[in-house]
């Protein structure tokens, strides 16, 4: 079922039914997006639930001028950034501790290169991390990322370029240190 059909059910009074369909359609995509941001499964689960609770609470205010997909990604990304920022305020380096634990994480079966990649991405500031992930992993067009993050395309391209260079350098350091 596509977004238009879900919204039609919602407008015809089927609020809970539409919400359940929306959860079914987007839970996996949003989970993987959040998981790459926060790395830990339990943290990702919390963020995903918070995302859908916010969707449930503000579905009435969804104006429909943005795509449902963009709106959901915006809420999920903001939820992840908020989580990482709170970690930072508590004095923890955003995601770095979780990245260090990746090799022993039961829910991670990547190789050394993938572990080095996620450890390097974890060093990026939260918003730049979101730009990098949306472009690098999801291959989302800049135009779409611009709508999700409410940032100009020019700024996003520059941000992604800098992030890419930083990640590349950190990966090199990580791999050189191992081998």
């Amino acid at each position: 079922m596509n977004d238009k059909e879900i919204l039609k059910i919602y407008r015809e009074g089927g609020r809970e039914q539409a919400f359940r369909l929306l959860v079914q359609s987007y839970k996996e995509r949003l989970y993987w997006h959040i998981r790459r941001m926060v790395l830990d499964h339990d943290d990702a689960d919390d963020c995903l639930q918070n995302t859908f609770i916010k969707v449930w609470q503000s579905l009435d205010r969804f104006r429909g001028d943005a795509q449902l997909y963009t709106w959901l990604y915006r809420i999920a990304t903001n939820e992840s950034i908020t989580f990482l920022t709170q970690q930072q305020r508590r004095g923890e380096q955003t995601g770095i501790a979780a990245a260090e634990r990746l090799s022993s994480d039961a829910w991670f079966d990547g190789d050394q290169v993938q572990a080095a990649l996620h450890k390097s991405i974890a060093k990026l500031p939260p918003k730049q991390k979101a730009v990098f992930n949306l472009r690098y992993f999801e291959e989302m067009p800049y135009e779409e990322i611009s709508r999700v993050l409410e940032t100009s395309e020019g700024a996003l391209k520059a941000s992604y370029h800098h992030a890419y260079e930083k990640v590349k350098g950190w990966m090199k350091e990580e791999i050189d240190a191992k081998y």
Binding site: Y31, A115, F137
Partner: peptide
């Protein structure tokens, strides 16, 4: 070489699993 590593990491697929 480093871009190859980045590309290889991406093409290796999803390293995360869910319970």
């Amino acid at each position: 070489e480093q871009q190859d590593i980045l590309e290889r990491a991406r093409q290796a697929g999803q390293p995360f699993k869910a319970p």
